[in-house]
Simulated assay, not measured.
Amino acid sequence: MEELWEIKQLLHQGKVQEALVVVEELEEMSKTDKLNKIFSYGIILLLHLIKKAAEKRTTKSWDISILNSLKQIQRTNKRRKTKGTYFDSEEIQETLEDAYDSALRSAALEVFEGTYTVEYLEEIINKNKIITEALNLILVH
């Protein structure tokens, strides 16, 4: 809220350019926050997709986690007033790629009760396929 006060003060002083700089900073902070949320939910989404691929099965719990993660990613990315999105498919894919390693490490703890190492999961799981599947689910679902 301090930034809003600063913008108001700058506008009252006729310093429009300076006010616009603060607006741009607020916009960047908002986008960063949204990307962080997408990253966090992306880890959960990828974790369950990795588990499904590794164990070649699913559970109701995993399916619900996938659906909840999808919903949260879509809600975070949705622009309310213009009905568009904040981030395009490339930005979402980049965020998923960034989240993948965290998801893989978590999956190693859970797949077959933690019997697989991260390195073994890397060998048996197709990273690009998992990320593409996640991206398709986000964009289509």
Rank of each mutant, 00 (worst) to 15 (best):
Y41G: 03
Y41K: 07
I43R: 12
I44C: 07
I44W: 11
I44Y: 08
L46F: 13
L47D: 10
H48L: 04
I50A: 04
I50T: 01
K51D: 12
K52S: 01
K52V: 05
K52I: 06
A53S: 15
K56I: 03
R57F: 00
T58C: 08
T59F: 01
T59R: 02
S61F: 15
W62I: 11
I64F: 03
I64T: 10
S65C: 09
S65Q: 15
I66S: 00
L67E: 09
L67T: 12
L67Q: 13
N68M: 06
S69H: 00
S69D: 05
L70A: 03
Q72Y: 10
I73G: 00
Q74I: 14
T76N: 08
K78S: 14
K78I: 10
R79T: 14
R79V: 15
T82P: 09
T82Q: 13
K83C: 04
K83M: 09
T85G: 08
T85I: 12
Y86T: 09
Y86S: 03
D88I: 07
S89Q: 14
S89R: 15
E90M: 11
E91H: 13
E91M: 14
Q93V: 06
L96Q: 01
L96M: 01
E97K: 07
D98M: 13
D98W: 12
D98I: 10
A99S: 12
Y100T: 09
Y100A: 11
Y100N: 06
S102I: 09
L104H: 02
L104Q: 03
L104T: 03
R105W: 08
L109I: 09
E110K: 10
E110M: 11
F112G: 09
F112T: 11
G114E: 08
G114Y: 03
G114K: 04
T115C: 06
Y116C: 00
E119H: 00
E119A: 04
Y120L: 13
E122C: 03
I124M: 13
I124E: 12
I124P: 08
I125G: 01
I125F: 00
